[in-house]
């Protein structure tokens, strides 16, 4: 059974923009899927529909057999806690420490007053420290998040998402705000960690070579529709043209 099953997904924004025009996508456990496509193809809308940061207009999204489109209130929060998300702009809480940012990933299973007084469960604290070690930020645990560099900030974002112990990880252009070298480093760490945890991952990338290097499967999105779905090796010149509407730059 697939871990994520999207059927006939449509999204029309209040502005009238039709971002998704009937997307069908089925993802199995452990896959690392890169979604590529030009700006405005609907990549962001697609993954934001999965955790309902964006409300779908039509279609169904099933995660582990549960239809998330109809959920609300505490059921929606519970479902969201099972989906980790990494953001393009990092979306860290600047004035909080690195550790506090990572522990945000445990908020859903921590009571309000416990989180207010920063009394997180021992297991969560321990896992947070382990994750910070793995992303190479052990020396920055108590620094303020805004004191870190871009690459370090995204690594905090990765640790925060993984602390949720998610079933599914979504990454929305995780490297778009980073330079090429740092992008590669961040994607390498991300890939190592999700492989280690056997985590199903969907990552939006505009950098196609990076997508080919990191993903086990590529989905090409163009004008709100899936126009390619296959392993990185099948992403040929002709396919490139269907996705981007023009041939790959020579050289």
């Amino acid at each position: 059974m697939p871990i994520l099953k999207i059927t006939g997904l449509e999204k029309k924004y209040a502005t009238g923009d039709l971002a998704l025009r009937g997307v069908d996508l089925s993802i199995d456990a452990g896959e690392i899927v890169a979604i590529i496509g030009p700006s405005g193809a609907g990549k962001s809308s697609l993954i934001r529909c999965v955790n309902r940061l964006v409300e779908p207009t039509a279609g169904s999204i099933e995660i582990d057999g549960i239809d998330v489109v109809s959920l609300s209130g505490s059921q929606l929060r519970e479902q969201r806690s099972r989906i980790g998300m990494i953001f393009q702009s990092f979306a860290l809480v600047d004035r909080l420490s690195v550790m506090e940012n990572v522990l945000c990933g445990a908020l859903s299973r921590t009571g309000f007053w416990a989180s207010w007084f920063r009394k997180f469960a021992e297991g969560d604290v321990d896992r947070a420290l382990t994750l910070l070690e793995k992303v190479g930020l052990s020396d920055h645990v108590n620094k303020r998040a805004d004191a870190l560099s871009g690459g370090q900030r995204q690594r905090v974002g990765i640790a925060r998402a993984l602390l949720q112990k998610p079933l599914l990880l979504l990454a929305d252009e995780p490297t778009a705000s980073l330079d090429p070298k740092t992008s590669k480093e961040v994607m390498t760490i991300l890939r190592e960690l999700v492989t280690e945890e056997g985590l199903t991952t969907i990552v939006n990338l505009h950098d196609v070579p990076l997508a080919k290097a990191c993903a086990t499967r590529i989905v090409g999105l163009s004008a709100g529709k899936v126009v390619f779905d296959g392993p990185p090796s099948e992403l040929t010149e002709a396919v490139w043209e269907t996705i981007y509407g023009e041939p790959e730059m020579a050289g």
Binding site: R77, E78, M85, V93, L107
Partner: peptide, 21 residues
């Protein structure tokens, strides 16, 4: 910045936690 609150929301945190964090 709405994206910060969105990130906390996306982790499954409740409304009060979204405000506090």
């Amino acid at each position: 910045d709405g994206s910060v609150r969105e990130a906390v929301q996306a982790s499954g945190a409740g409304w009060l936690q979204q405000m506090v964090f």
